[in-house]
Write a protein that binds this DNA or RNA. Structure first.
Length: 193
DNA sequence: CTAAAGATGTCCT
DNA sequence: GGACATCTTTAGA
């Protein structure tokens, strides 16, 4: 399956977050390929969004959010965790979608080894968990997701029907009025309860 | 099972 | 110097 085109990402961030649900994240390592279905995502925009890193304007850390759409924005937080976003909106306009949870499909053995657990449900049901399972670190910050490289996103070749639910975003203090967290209803790999 | 606390680096004021 | 888009471990019911 070919990676999603740049035009997919070059739209309103909330719309992209919705449509990323059910898509497949692909991570290519030296001798392994990891695949998983995106089951939870959050939208973060710019000056209109107090919860966003880009709210304060362009800085060294968040500059990827202002760059071209369809790139990975990886940042380090809480002193020990990485989180994976994909950039959205046209160049110059900040936007990113945080991938919060993934349903493992392929390479589960390798994920278990990386995560140090054999409980499938705990492999990638949270933003920092999935980056560890998928070996995503700062080295992938700014990586182009529209080519078949180390990391990209494709359509699911075995799609199943699902319904989308939305709530306020998690772990933030500002922008709680915006229901910009989206997840697949009833999916056991969604974080929280 | 739930609740509480600790770990820990980087960014921004 | 304080806050942080989190997870794990430990203690207790």
């Amino acid at each position: 399956m070919a990676p999603l085109a740049r035009s997919f990402y070059e739209r309103h961030t909330v719309r992209v977050a919705n449509e990323l649900l059910g898509k497949v994240l692909v991570r290519r390592l030296r001798s392994t390929v990891l695949r998983g279905i995106i089951v939870e995502a959050e939208a973060y925009r710019g000056q209109d969004d107090p919860a966003s890193h880009a709210y304060v304007g362009r800085t060294e850390r968040n500059q990827v959010m202002f760059g071209p759409p369809g790139h990975a924005y990886v940042y380090f937080t809480y002193g020990m965790h990485y989180c994976l976003n994909v950039t959205t909106e046209p160049i110059g306009q900040a936007g990113a979608v945080l991938i919060r949870a993934i349903q493992p499909v392929k390479g589960i053995e390798a994920m278990m080894k990386r995560r140090g657990t054999d409980r499938i449900r705990d492999l990638s049901n949270g933003p920092a968990k999935l980056t560890e399972a998928f070996a995503v670190t700062a080295g992938l910050n700014g990586h182009d997701l529209t080519t078949v490289g180390r990391l990209f996103i494709t359509e699911n070749d075995k799609p199943e029907a699902f319904r989308i639910a939305s709530t306020s975003r998690i772990g933030i203090t500002g922008g709680l009025d915006k229901p910009w967290r989206f997840f697949i209803k009833g999916n056991p790999f969604v974080s929280k309860k």
